[in-house]
Each structure stands twice: as C-alpha cells, then as structure tokens.
Amino acid sequence: MAVKNVIEAVREALREEMQRDPKVFIMGEDVGQRGGVFLATQGLIDEFGESRVIDTPLAEASIMGIALGAAFRGMRPIPEVQFSDFIWPAMNQLIGETARACYGSNGVLQVPVVIRVPYGGGIRGGLFHSQNVESIFFHTPGLKVIAPATPYDIKGLLKSAIRDNSPVVFLEHKKTYRLVRGELPEGEYTIPIGQADVKRAGEHITIVSYGLMLHYCLEAAEAVAGEGIDVEVVDLRTLKPLDTETVLNSVKKTGKLLIVHEDNVTGGVGAEIAALVADEAFEYLDGPVRRLCGPDVPTMPFAQTLEDEYMPNTDKIVEALRRQAAY
C-alpha cells in the first residue's frame, strides 16, 4: 500500500472519477491553472482540459447556481467553495434550491452535485479562513454531509459522493490536508456513505468525533491507556445520514460518552448525538453525556493565544476523559 496525505487522496479520487465518467466536471475559483489553492486539483486541467476543470469568476452564489442548472441537464458537477467561510453567499442556492429540487419536483429532478468545502481552523486563519459550517447543512433535509479524517476514508467517500445522485456537502478539514498521512490501497475501492468507523476499540468510554479532532482523540486515548482508561473512538465519517447504530452499540458497551468536535458547541452535531443517545441508550448510561467542542465564540480568533484557547486539543481531551472515567 502507498502512504499518502489527505490532499493526495482527494486528488486521486477526483481523477479516478473523472476518468470513469465523462459527465463529471470540476468548477471553482483557481481550480484549473493553479490547481487549487491547496493543490487539490493540480494536474487535472492538463489531463481533462479546461472544459471539465473550470476557473470560475469569484462568485460563490453563481458557482452554486450554475452547478445546479448543469445537474438538471444531466451533468455531475463538483463545485468547490475555496474556503467554508465563503459559502455564505451561496446559501440560497444551496439550502433554498439544491436541497429541495428533488423533493419539490416529486423526484423528477435529480441533483448529483458534490460541493467540496475546505473547512476548519488551527492554522491561524482568523475569523474568515477557519469556520466550521457543517451543522447548518447537517440540519437541512435533502443534503448529505460527509466529513472524513483520513486519506483512506476521504478517497473512498469522495468517490461514493460523486456517484451518489443526491447533493452532497463534502467537508475537508484543511489542517489535515498535509498533516495526516495514511495508507491507500492499490485498486478500486469505495466506502459507503452513512457508515461510521470504530478507529479504536475500548471498554470504558466512547468518544464520538470527526475531522481533525478524530486524530487528537486517538492521541488522547493512547495517553490515558496507561492510566487504565480504555477508550473506544468512533469516527463518524458521514454526518448525515448519521450511523446511529454504531454510535448506540458503542455507548451501550461502555456506558459513558464524550463527544468531541471543533464546531461551536451549541446546536452542533454533538447536540444531536447527545439527544439520540439520551433517547435510545438511556438504560445503558453510567454517566452524563458530555461534549468537548469549540466555544460559542465566532470561529475563530487570529492571535495565537486566542486560537489556542478556542481549539480543542489532545490535552483538553485527556482531561475530559479523566473526568468521565472518574465519575
């Protein structure tokens, strides 16, 4: 198996799907000649030409709207929003139109659009290059929302997303682009949408997480293993549809749940999981369900001390695990 980083895995998935299906095309700012500001699409314009890798004007609302129209006509567009922070101009097209086109046409219109969104902080991005936007799309019926954390997962899920006939918001944590490396198998593979993955088996506490935080959770689990705290780490991978079965099975086994995500705590994905567990695993809980998440502060301040204060990290997770264990 080859060892690659996340951005290489994304690029491989895009290339393979574009080779496989001529209806797949990419559009967005700087995706063509420059290969994307993170080099996610590097080399694709040389291989597939500028009609299938389109450098668009700087206009997110029209990036979304044009993709939608092309999808109505039978194409499979992959529009890129350069940073999640810039997705807001596209919200009407995304939530008002794209999410509703199939339902509102009684299924006559299909919308096989994958919106690729680099997101997340911890890279001194300030208020406008760090945002976590997933909860709003998680909340919207009609959209699928995916947020993988490893090269293996991101390649397999991006391919599945491109082949899916529903609109997908595909979130790529930008700090993992070069910071996470892992094995990619040779040959064709996909990962089903809607399937979580137990990345570490354990007995005492369940952690549910996704994105960059997954890796800090794994570090924290290793750190407390020597203290006799055995942590099971569940990587959601897909946020919507949520793999409730894997989450509930894990909580029933351990009896204790800690949810970790970078997004602001109030109304985040973690709140939904906590409610789910309180409803369907109530009899198995041996302690309160807790969340370690980004604070309710605009995401996220620029100065180093303020960013560190904001971001969950391995040490904070270790402390939270110890408190859970001691309950």
């Binding site: 198996m1 890279i123 490893t150 090269p151 930008k174 490396r181 094995e183 890796h215």
Partner: peptide, 21 residues
C-alpha cells in the same frame, strides 16, 4: 505499515492561513 487510520505528522506547517500546498 502505518495502517489506514494513519497518523499526524509533526514539525511541518499544515497549510498557511489562506492556502498553500
């Protein structure tokens, strides 16, 4: 073998605040 979960690389800058690759 590093496994498909992979690992966090240390001592490199992940990306710049507005891009980089």
């Amino acid at each position: 073998p590093v496994g498909t979960t992979g690992y966090l690389v240390k001592n490199i800058n992940p990306v710049g605040p507005t891009g980089g690759g």
